[in-house]
Nucleic acid binder design. Structure first.
Lengths: 92, 92
DNA sequence: CGCTGATATCAGCATGGAGTGATCTTCTCT
DNA sequence: AGAGAAGATCACTCCATGCTGATATCAGCG
């Protein structure tokens, strides 16, 4: 969750959802500095949201859909639980 | 996203998914201070994740499943897009 | 009414984390 | 080998935000 909570990181994830890109493309698309982008990409990498594929002197970043899918299912399950226990209320 | 990115707030949401609670219960369950909890509840309220129902001198908090559901669908859509464009790669 | 308990708000402090510039490594090309 | 580009890491600054204590508000009860 925290990895996706930053606006720039969410933008990166949206871009990567459509195509695999390397850092240079992401710099061009987002307008962010290289260092800044590299930091955010590290966060996404350590959270398992993206994976890297070195290709010569470029580094391609690809989204890992499983992670998003898994988070989506967790939220959906929470929502379902909430719906089914809508009338449960602990008395004071 | 940002509203759910905090661990304490996520805990609150998990608790509220099972039953509607008032602030006193949440204090007991989480062990957090009243002020702290009230601040987080405000964040969740302003994000539309929870809604309040004043009941005498108590304030009950209830989860709004639509919001979680909507976020879940957005993530799922992103994952689906990523899957379908897994082989799309912009050349450098 | 005043007291007490529930909850919200305010102001201050402290820390995490985002942004930046400088530097280092590694790859490619000549 | 040397130059230049891609990209990671480091060290630093600074701001957003989480936490706290004090205070305000309001409902219920004697």
């Amino acid at each position: 969750m925290r990895a996706l909570a930053d606006p720039l990181r969410l933008q990166i994830v949206s871009l990567l959802a459509h195509e695999t890109l390397c850092t240079t493309h992401l710099i061009a698309e987002t307008g962010a500095r290289q260092t800044n982008l590299s930091n955010h990409l590290r966060v996404l990498r350590e959270a398992g949201v993206v994976e890297t594929e070195p290709c010569g002197r470029y580094t391609y970043y690809r989204l890992r859909p499983e992670v998003l899918e898994s988070l989506s299912e967790k939220l959906s399950a929470l929502a379902a639980t909430a719906r089914s226990s809508a009338d449960v209320r602990r008395p004071c």
